[in-house]
Nucleic acid binder design. Structure first.
Lengths: 200, 200, 200, 200
DNA sequence: GATGAATGAGGCTTCATTCAT
DNA sequence: GATGAATGAAGCCTCATTCAT
């Protein structure tokens, strides 16, 4: 029964489509991206894409979900309960820098979905944002338990942490700073966050 | 001499087009926005738009510049050298909350331009970002002179302030918090920023 | 009573419009020619043209008639009953060479109208063609009376003369020959025509 | 292997498009001709045309080339080295009459391209004109070899032959003569050309 | 299942013409 | 009479989607 192999093939093709779609969407945006180009890059026929995804919109959403999973994995790893809160915050910061630079396609797609105007895309991107906040809030609560900080509203704190981290990275990139220059500020930013948290 | 009136009429029409364009672009994004619809909303003929703007792209850019000016005016007012640094930061935070809520069309357009993929739009949006940073950096330097804080890199500090302020507001909005709820956190966020600055 | 002066002014403006129209139509053809451009070249407002001509089509026709009159004048002069038939034919040939080179705008407009697809334009251009044939036929008949040739169908002969003269000039031009080179063939062509006539 | 059939289908469709395009362009001219109408006449969808031709202009050029080939074939056949020069000239004349009447669409398109203002179209039409001259020049040289005529400049002679033939037919048509009436003059025109050649 | 030829809706833009001043 | 701002019809072309093979 070649079923398993077929299933693997199908999954591989699906992944290839999503990968190329991410590049195309990141490069051109949803409207300007061309289904035909994506098919060519993925090495399949134009019509074949529709055997994997209902339409362009669904392809975009599937790609967005794929990106979300991948990014969440990175963030979870960064927030592993090793070391002090300061260290975990630094790792979080560096994880974002890394994502923004090494996975820039994904990052761009995610950001444009989040701040774009298509409600469906925004909703999907928001899910990831919620997950970010949730997993950071968890870390905050752990730190409370450990006595590293004393706080009440873990979610507000998490939101602050995420905002400062993510948007600092983004703004710095948009303003043209190098990855290296930004990475070097990990310690400063983390310390600043920490003090901010402890004071409020 | 009907010239003055004509000039006023022309300026009024131009403003009306830009206003409606902002709404349409905010609602649908650049590609999905329809020049014909914008013309109808502005109460003019389809062809008339082209007497005011060379093409769709130039209309978008003109609108973006208009938004930039308006937003910068708000931010400058918020950063007026009255009161303590804490108070100025609170006003900055509230100004962003206000912009995001009351001028949500403009805000959405600006954000999607900044994080979209069209280089020309990104460049224009980046200009505004630079202006933000510059004017905040100025406040930071004033505060140094006044002895409120002791810092070396005013621009880095400004970027931190902007990042935390702007993106906190944005994230909170995207996550569905009410304007009121966000506004109430002005004091907390400002204090946190201040401590962060003083520590680093 | 400034009426006369006004009438002169009006006539002068009309002529200026027609002159510039001829250039524009010759350069771009009827459809691509731009009314606004013609107005600018003529130094008047866009709307003013419509005080002189009902619409673009009528302007074109008026221009065509103007060209016709001018060209017929040249041809009549060339065919003046001075000299031998051979000399008159040579003058006719040279007149066409001159028209094609010195009045190339007019010539191009006339040819494109004649061989174009707009029936109204074709009809107008055909009138000129008929006039050509008629005036040449007259010369043929004169020559018969003078005993220079003996022929029956003066109109067929005229058509031959015109065809060979006009289209020889045109083909030679299209094929890139210089005015001088073509002019030098006046004698040959005229002699050839003459022999042809005498034989048939 | 449906390839051959497909290829045949494709070629058939291409021909159908060109055929209908010729009619539409002949009827309305390049600018007024409507791609949509051509598609409907050809029995295909509007977008399908763009699978066969890059754009309207390329369609026109392709059609022009197709016309050129077809016309050159007719002319070559007429000039086949059978019979006397007089007979060949008569066949040439009749071939033009036939083309002008039976292939009037093609003829109109070719003439309007030749005398229109679009340089690209003019160039393409000029190629055909050159081919005409070349093949007629060949006949002239053959006739020299055979001793039918004694001439030096075969190309100039060829141009004369073409001019008189083609433009006689055209002028006669424009002036409203019937095909039959024009055809009957084949002998006269041919004889006249012949004498003209022999004399010069 | 895979393909890609065919489709046609949709939109930006031009420009002849009108008409209020 | 002269003007030119305003208009909107008209058309080329793109591209997501379908479906016969």
């Amino acid at each position: 029964m070649p079923k398993v192999v077929d299933e693997q093939m199908r999954e591989a093709t699906r992944r290839r489509i999503i990968h190329e779609a991410a590049g195309e969407f990141a490069r051109l945006g949803f409207d300007q991206a061309n289904i035909n180009t994506i098919a060519e890059l993925a090495g399949i026929g134009k019509g074949t894409i529709y055997l994997y995804f209902e339409n362009k919109r669904e392809l975009f959403l599937a790609m967005l979900r794929s990106i979300s999973q991948s990014q969440m994995a990175s963030i979870r790893a960064a927030l592993a309960p090793d070391g002090t809160l300061q260290q975990r915050l630094e790792r979080l910061f560096r994880a974002f820098v890394h994502l923004a630079e090494q996975e820039s396609d994904s990052f761009n797609v995610y950001m444009s979905a989040l701040y774009g105007v298509n409600r469906a895309f925004q909703d999907e991107a928001t899910k990831l944002l919620r997950d970010y906040v949730a997993v950071i809030a968890l870390m905050v609560e752990e730190s409370q338990v450990r006595g590293e900080i004393t706080t009440q509203k873990s979610e507000t704190t998490a939101l602050m942490i995420l905002s400062l981290t993510e948007s600092y990275v983004l703004s710095a990139r948009v303003l043209g700073r190098s990855e290296q220059a930004i990475t070097q500020e990990a310690s400063i930013v983390a310390r600043m966050i920490l003090h901010g948290i402890r004071t409020s």
